[in-house]
Design a binder for these strands. Structure first.
Length: 333
DNA sequence: AAGAGAGTCAACCGCAATCTG
DNA sequence: GCAGATTGCGGTTGACTCTCT
């Protein structure tokens, strides 16, 4: 491990840079290039600053290729996409946004995007819908609750109702659309839940049907501008419905894994900074629209699925503003 | 008009990786 | 291979601005 820089007795001045200091730094770098020793620069340039401060000032503010001003929608989309894949790797994210600095992106994230995601019902850390966190907590406690209570018999007799009743009491107010969950569950647990076409739809499989994946885990569609690219390389076996009791079925909603954002990247090693181009999202040409999703995933010939479609539609038509998250989730697919 | 609170963003801090002799 | 120096990064701070009451 390296150690901290030696105590810098040359680092006299701190705080905001003056225009004069900026000019001295810019003039020096223009005349001598910017890739010498930052630690030596202040002395050579005649600045009463430490090298670290000079480097920061140059890279974050004075560099000629800095793009200032508001972030475009496209830039915001990219930031969210990249953040969902690699987390708080601001410098790596900045590498894909020409003219933007890591510091700028970090600030933008912390002041705009994070709040926006939270307001949309998205956890900005995990990029999963906040309901997932509640469900996770619920599920973590559910089986323990059953095992330590005499509710087991009731649950076995009527697993769906008892589980949903527990869920209702657990979720915060206003509760997300429980009916939606209930319908999904019914489809999943029906003897012949979904036609073959769905088995070929890995989007739905990976998000709902596969063991260990989430109901809506990581569904980036929840973000305003997310698009799904064809996830053909991520086909999961369809889980067999109706095999166990309520909490075993509930465990199908285990949110580990799920449809994670990195699945939407063609290239695998997004973390390799040297492969910068590989970090760009893959083509959006194969995005899946809600109409297609309804048609493919919830075909009308299945009664439960038909109800499901109606539920989606009702949700979309709900004007009370209480379901913005769900609307965004569906509308922007 | 003034004060409080929220939002913004440049700059700092500390840690860790990398470089150099 | 080691120790010290340098650089890069992410988290945090605090001054400034804006908005609301």
């Amino acid at each position: 491990m390296g150690r901290s820089p030696s105590p810098s007795n040359e680092c006299v001045k701190k705080g905001p840079w003056t225009p004069e200091e900026d000019k001295i730094l810019m003039d020096y770098i223009h005349e001598n290039g910017g890739h010498g020793s930052w630690s030596a620069l202040p002395k050579l340039a005649g600045l009463n600053r430490c090298g670290k401060s000079c480097r920061l000032r140059w890279t974050n503010y004075l560099r000629p290729d800095i793009k200032r001003g508001k972030f475009s929608d496209e830039e915001e989309r990219m930031i969210i996409n990249l953040h969902s894949a690699i987390g708080n790797k601001w410098s790596q994210i900045a590498a894909h946004l020409p003219g933007r600095t890591d510091n700028e992106i970090k600030n933008f994230w912390n002041t705009h995007v994070r709040r926006k995601l939270v307001n949309s019902g998205i956890d900005p850390k995990t990029h999963e819908p906040l309901i997932i966190n509640h469900l996770n907590s619920f599920l973590a406690n559910y089986s323990q609750l059953l095992s330590t209570s005499n509710l087991s018999n009731l649950v076995i007799a009527n697993p769906l109702e008892s589980a949903l009743a527990s869920l209702r009491s657990f979720l915060p107010q206003p509760a997300p659309n429980i009916q939606l969950l209930q319908n999904l569950w019914q489809i999943i647990n029906s003897p012949n839940p979904l036609p073959n076409s769905i088995q070929e739809n890995s989007l739905l499989q990976s998000s709902i049907l596969s063991p260990g994946s989430g109901l809506i885990s990581g569904t980036n569609a929840a973000y305003n501008h997310y698009t799904f690219t064809s996830p053909n390389t991520h086909v999961h076996p369809q889980r067999r419905p109706g095999e166990d009791h309520a909490f075993n079925n509930l465990s199908a909603f285990n949110m580990e894994g799920g449809l994670r954002p990195e699945l939407f990247y063609n290239d695998t090693d997004i973390r390799n900074n040297s492969q910068k181009e590989s970090m760009l999202p893959s083509s959006v040409s194969e995005s899946v629209g809600v109409e297609q999703m309804n048609r493919t995933c919830f075909p009308a010939e299945t009664p439960a699925a038909s109800n499901m479609v109606r539920t989606w539609e009702e949700l979309l038509n709900d004007e009370d503003g209480g379901n913005d998250f769900w609307k965004d989730l569906i509308k922007d697919l």
